[in-house]
Amino acid sequence: MEKPAFYFKMILSGILMGISMVLPGTSWPVMAIILGVYEPLMLALNKLFSAPKTLTRHDVRLLLFLIIGIGPAIFFTAYFILGLLMKFAFEINAVFIGLILGSVYLIYIEIKKKGFSEFLWFFLGIAVVVVPLLFGFKISNLRFFATIFGSRMLDFISGLIVSTSLPAIGDTIMLLLLGNYRHLLNAVRTFDFTTLLIFLSGFLIGFFAFVRIIGSLLKNYRSQTYAFIIGLMMASITSIWPFTRHTYDLSRVILFMILVAGGFLISFYLEKISTKKVKHGNG
């Protein structure tokens, strides 16, 4: 039986993951890795979808209390927090870069094998994030998606694509690339259930399939999968880099370095208090 601290940490992890699903430049899988719950979450979901009878009580509690945190956080962030946090985008992005760098280091030391295969998958992870950003591609610019049926298809495709539960393919980044972020955020704010249900149906279909894939990869190709994830996470920094040509003054650079260092240290603290308890919880 887990201690009350476990339930608190799972709800808090869910809240932070829910917030990261809404904020531009963030990713709930990256947040899950920072909090030390990504791998156990993927493995628990893989059991749920492929062999439900193998689920332990610990798996069920982990899933339940994460959901308790995630659901309200999504709506609360969309309604009240988003505008406030966007005023401090520089500071938030700086801390998040530190969190990413700290998490990358923690993942790197977990990779037992570091050969050509892992090197190749690392650069593939970088390419997956960077190439669409370089070309500025948005499928919403296609004429078909300007129609009513096309816009509904885009909602479904948006759900399908952001369901990929790999770090750094952030929900909001993918929606921004698709050109559908503001539309879906407004649907949350206005309780546009038609749009939300279409998005959710795409998300669930993609998520059920992808969880089984990532669960299998973590079991059978752990080092390559984590090398790919590191590539994704490193490349994701380009999408939240807080500087522009006009903001490289000394005070901002010093503040940036302090906040990055703080985020780096926070990732180590979160890993210390979360990972071991989550991975070794009893059934």
Rank of each mutant, 00 (worst) to 15 (best):
F199H: 01
I15F: 14
L142Y: 13
I109M: 10
W28D: 06
F76C: 09
D249Y: 12
F207Q: 05
L259K: 12
L23C: 01
S165V: 15
V260S: 11
S267E: 04
I19C: 07
R245C: 02
F137C: 03
A73I: 04
G159N: 06
L178V: 05
F76S: 09
I97E: 02
G98P: 05
L142A: 12
F88C: 06
H280G: 05
L154M: 08
F135V: 13
D249M: 05
I169A: 14
T56C: 11
F137Y: 11
H280R: 10
L133G: 08
S103I: 05
R143H: 02
L166Q: 01
S274M: 14
T164A: 13
V104Q: 02
I266W: 02
A127N: 02
V253Y: 00
R57D: 05
F256W: 03
F76N: 01
I198A: 08
E110W: 00
S267I: 04
F193H: 08
L197R: 12
G215R: 03
V95T: 10
V129R: 04
S151I: 06
S216K: 08
L48K: 02
F116A: 10
G98Q: 06
G170V: 07
K113I: 09
Y105Q: 08
K277N: 10
K113S: 10
D249C: 01
F199D: 01
A127P: 01
G283V: 03
I198K: 07
D171I: 15
T190H: 11
G170A: 14
L12C: 12
S158K: 10
G136A: 05
L196H: 09
R189P: 02
S13P: 06
I97R: 04
S223Y: 10
Y248E: 11
P72T: 07
L41D: 02
L197I: 15
L45D: 00
I254E: 04
F80P: 01
F203L: 15
Y7F: 14
K219S: 10
T247P: 01
L184W: 11
M233L: 13
L177N: 01
F228G: 04
G115I: 03
I33T: 08
S251Q: 12
F96W: 07
K3W: 05
I214K: 00
L133D: 01
T225L: 11
L64V: 15
M42P: 00
V253N: 00
K53I: 13
I34P: 01
K112S: 10
